[in-house]
């Protein structure tokens, strides 16, 4: 990848794990391994600029429309530490308004290394169901 930054060895990132680092010593990013996929985001919440990638990873409490509740997307919900916005990984979208998303960065695996680019990618909006 041109203009990419080597973040870590690919083996250093376990399933469900993350690395918070700065690209070139400047741009704070979070690199996650979710469902075997390595994804990277700017460590910046679209709501109020919080270091969202440093939040807890867990599940979301959802309902089927009745009065029951259950846990969904366990291990894939990143909760921002400031205001608890919930981002579904690996997509990086909020579960209540998918148009609000973390800024996703390109990732490549090159020679056993995780390489992250600094220019955001804009994937098509995924359909998120509760």
């Amino acid at each position: 990848m041109r203009d990419g930054y080597v973040v870590c060895d690919v083996d250093a990132l376990a399933e469900g794990g993350r690395i918070i680092t700065r690209l070139g010593g400047q741009i704070s990013v979070g690199v996650f391994k979710i469902d075997g996929q390595v994804v990277a985001f700017r460590n910046y919440c679209p709501h109020a600029g919080a270091p969202a990638c440093e939040g807890t990873l867990g599940g979301a409490v959802v309902s089927d429309g009745g009065h029951e509740r259950h846990l969904a997307h366990d291990g894939r919900i990143l909760k921002c530490p400031w205001h608890a916005w919930e981002f579904l990984l690996p997509e990086g979208v909020t579960i209540t308004r998918p148009e609000y998303r973390l800024m996703r960065l390109p990732v490549a695996i090159e020679d056993g290394k995780v390489v992250v680019g600094s220019h955001p990618v804009r994937p098509p909006r995924p359909q998120v169901s509760a």
Partner: peptide, 10 residues
């Protein structure tokens, strides 16, 4: 709403 959402998932 967002931080409290899980209390009323419906």
């Amino acid at each position: 709403y967002r931080p409290m959402r899980g209390d009323m998932p419906w």
